[in-house]
Design a protein around this nucleic acid. Structure first.
Lengths: 195, 195
DNA sequence: GCCGTCTCTTGATTTCAGACAAGAAAAAAC
DNA sequence: GTTTTTTCTTGTCTGAAATCAAGAGACGGC
């Protein structure tokens, strides 16, 4: 479990063995079955979650009952309702498992403790969030600038290896498209590639 | 100039006078006229910019020549092409001044130096980026979940005091709407409020 | 191995907001 | 204070993608 987390952290900063031992007890581990909730809207998001195995999604449900996927998280990704976690107010996102999943979780208190005990973790999260911001900026730009087709093709290209693991209607939901639209885009490209 | 920056930093962490003196020389200050560019697409984004007075926007231009505003930044906000800044590759965003503006700017080298000289700045940026992520998540959710009307009303409510400072067609561009759509939404509400 | 649920496809129809056009009002420049 | 530019409004038409509908295929659970 922790190998995946430490590998991720050490991709950004250096950790001593001593620091690793200080980090471990601040996390709890958990397994999730397919379709199992990690968080439901209206609850408080008590933990920040790091995926060591499997695949999760976060999504919100609008007034009409439609689901809108906000994020996928597989091995090496963090996920949470960040607003709810930081403020300890009610969550607006649901998080559940698309596959059997294993996670490491840290509470708000331990998250604060973590950066006190291991100050370099402030830097780790600073760098992690920096990169997330770049990704979100790009995604936001894509959502207003690109057509349905461009959005799907960009996603398919960027996340090629994860593509088979996620049902198409969930990708549609992530991109803000109807599942039928994705189906039509794919048909078009299958026939093009056959030429 | 620096009062605005230090006030912002001290909203998140504590700074000693000594630390402030170490921070100052890492920044340069600059004034911008209305419509003046701070960054153009295809250039390298060399500095992270903090606005002490005035109003900036970042935007990208699509294949058809349409502008899409990515962010507004007024007093107390940071702005940049973050991807370009971090990687020193070509920028995709333009940044220019909507009003006469005064800024403080820090180069990538000094940004790295800053967190070495004043480690608490890792924490400041970690918290700053944390909050930005929450905002971007909400905005992303709004862009797929809400109708044109909901998007505008939410923006108008949230940024009520800044609303008069930004021309409507720029708000439209920020929200991914046509200016005419905003005009129609406002007409509807003006007549409703008159009842 | 069979049943039920989940996932994907295809066609027909509708709709929301975008594009285009043109003029009015307001602000900035000179 | 007049001209020029910018900003906002209103009307009409169009289009990309959503919605509605229905069936086929794949997968998972028992």
């Amino acid at each position: 479990m922790f190998e995946v987390l430490f590998a991720h952290i050490e991709g950004k900063i250096h950790l001593t063995d001593q620091e690793k031992e200080r980090i471990k007890p601040l996390f709890i581990s958990r397994k999730l079955r397919r379709r199992q909730y990690l968080l439901q809207a209206e609850e408080i998001c008590t933990h920040l979650t790091f995926v060591t195995k499997g695949l999760l999604r976060s999504y919100n449900v609008d007034d009409k009952g439609n689901e809108h996927i906000n994020q996928f998280a597989w091995e090496g990704w963090w996920i949470s309702d960040f607003y709810s976690f930081l403020t300890q107010e009610k969550a607006i996102f649901n998080i559940d498992a698309i596959e059997e999943t294993e996670v490491l979780m840290i509470s708000l208190q331990n998250y604060e403790e973590l950066t006190v005990q291991v100050p370099a973790m402030d830097r780790y999260f600073r760098i992690l969030y920096q990169n997330s911001l770049v990704t979100k900026d790009r995604r936001l730009m894509s959502s207003t600038t690109h057509t349905a087709e461009e959005k799907y093709l960009q996603f398919a290209k960027r996340y090629a290896q994860i593509l088979q693991r996620i049902p198409q209607h969930l990708i549609a939901s992530y991109l803000g498209l109807a599942p039928e639209t994705i189906s039509r885009i794919r048909r078009k490209w299958v026939s093009k590639e056959a030429i």
